[in-house]
């Protein structure tokens, strides 16, 4: 979720951050700098992949102004696990992951600090989460159910620990975006555990979607940060699964406001497939997102832009 695109937008929202000021801040971080055109194109285009230099600079700036509330040591451990999980050449990867999991469980039992408890549970949740596609694709139902429940339970514990921390330290509250992310992961456990073709009719997904107020929370998150296209895209996905046309319209409009490119359903933003290719969007495409409707949104947007200029 926190891509370079989002980070640039979040920084740009800060009071007094004109493009000139933005570039000055970047120059303070590195003598190499970034030219205005590159920065602006990454601000406008959700599909643009940044080079390592730009990514490093934006991360550095972002971390300075929006420091992560979790302990750095555990964030680094999380990065280490991500590298291990994504490494295709690592021999006996699962055994090493199991060893790490054992260590984390031991740490979790001894831990007393709420943010450490939260992050340790988050990482344990991630480990279980990453096993879900393996068991689903190999038809191993018992293992699938077990790792799904384990992931959900760890993410729940992580959310509770953040809430306890926020109650205890109101002066150092963890932002709502972290709570949103953990809850998003719980929903992702429900969704990913079901093969794509059956998701629209899966009772567990529908029940959790309704009980968790996911759509309402997504709208609230978008009001605070309207540039979060992944939130809008997931909102669209679940509105489609719930077959709710009003919400489909809400989220496609939110996406179009971020970039008009989203009105082309074949558009592929960074690290995501096109809406046209996703089975979860099927109902929305068939019933709401017709080419005429998409064209009408584009026309309205053009008219509004002309109105603003004149």
């Amino acid at each position: 979720m926190t891509t370079v695109f989002n980070k640039i937008h979040r920084l740009k929202q800060r009071p007094g951050w004109t493009w000139g000021h933005f570039l000055t801040e970047i120059d303070k971080c590195s003598s190499m700098g970034v030219d205005e055109k590159t920065l602006y194109s990454h601000f406008r285009e959700p599909h643009k992949k940044p080079n390592s230099q730009l990514e490093k600079l934006i991360n550095q700036l972002h971390d300075g102004y929006f420091p992560d509330p979790f302990p750095e040591a555990l964030n680094r451990l999380m990065r280490l696990y991500n590298h291990l999980f994504n490494c295709k050449k690592h021999i006996a990867k699962e055994k090493d992951i199991q060893d790490l999991e054992f260590f984390l469980q031991q740490q979790c039992e001894r831990e007393v600090e709420w943010l450490r408890i939260s992050r340790l549970n988050w990482l344990l949740g991630n480990i279980a989460f990453d096993r879900i596609p393996l068991y689903r694709d190999n038809g191993m139902r018992e293992q699938l159910e077990s790792c799904k429940q384990s992931a959900i339970s760890h993410y729940q514990k992580s959310v509770s620990a953040i809430e306890f921390h926020n109650e205890k330290y109101p002066q150092a509250m963890v932002g709502t975006s972290h709570l949103y992310k953990a809850r998003h992961n719980i929903l992702a456990c429900y969704l990913n555990a079901v093969p794509q073709a059956k998701r629209g009719k899966d009772e567990n997904i529908i029940r959790y979607l309704k009980a968790s107020s996911y759509i309402a929370n997504s709208k609230r998150a978008l009001e605070a940060e309207p540039f979060q296209w992944t939130i809008a895209r997931n909102g669209l996905r679940f509105s489609s699964l719930l077959e709710n046309d009003a919400d489909v319209i809400y989220f496609i409009t939110a996406l179009a406001n971020i970039s008009r490119r989203f009105l082309n359903l074949d558009y592929e933003p960074l690290n995501h497939g096109a809406i046209n290719e996703g089975e979860d969007f099927h109902w929305a495409i068939e019933n709401v997102l017709t080419s005429d409707y998409l064209a009408s949104i584009e026309m309205d947007m053009k008219k509004n832009n002309k109105g603003k200029r004149s």
């Binding site: 979720m1 991630n126 596609p133 992702a188």
Partner: peptide
């Protein structure tokens, strides 16, 4: 197993 094209990604 390969991740399905439209699985939801987890957030850190």
């Amino acid at each position: 197993s390969e991740q399905q094209s439209d699985d939801m990604e987890r957030l850190d």
